[in-house]
Amino acid sequence: MFGPFRLTNPLSGGLLWKVPWRLSRHQKYRQRERLRRVDSVIDTLDSALAKQGQTMKKVVRWKLEMPREEEMLPKDKYTVFDRKVKRYRKGIHKVPKWTRVSQRLNPPGF
């Protein structure tokens, strides 16, 4: 029943990969931390450039358009739009390289 050779579905039946359809609460926690980390990088860039009396279009646009972690809905933090999925949402962990890309906005109307 226990140990390395226990009977589980992947061991007894060949190919079976299961990706859960939603994130665990620990994955969600780490996702929030990553969002906050990006926010802090943006803040650092903005304040450092402002001290020099300079601005940068990319930083300004990001601050205008992108919601911060605390402003985002849980729906947007943990799921993304996908036109092929029923009801148009899928878990963000299905996105390739999802821990290293920023995906915060939805297409208009969704």
Binding site: R37, V38, V41, T44, L45, L49, Q52, M56, K58, S102
Partner: peptide, 21 residues
């Protein structure tokens, strides 16, 4: 150094790095 050029480079890799001034 703190310049817009470097800031633009950091913007592209913002998910990968920790930045302090």
């Amino acid at each position: 150094p703190v310049t817009p050029d470097v800031a633009g480079q950091i913007m592209r890799i913002k998910e990968l790095v920790d930045v302090k001034e």
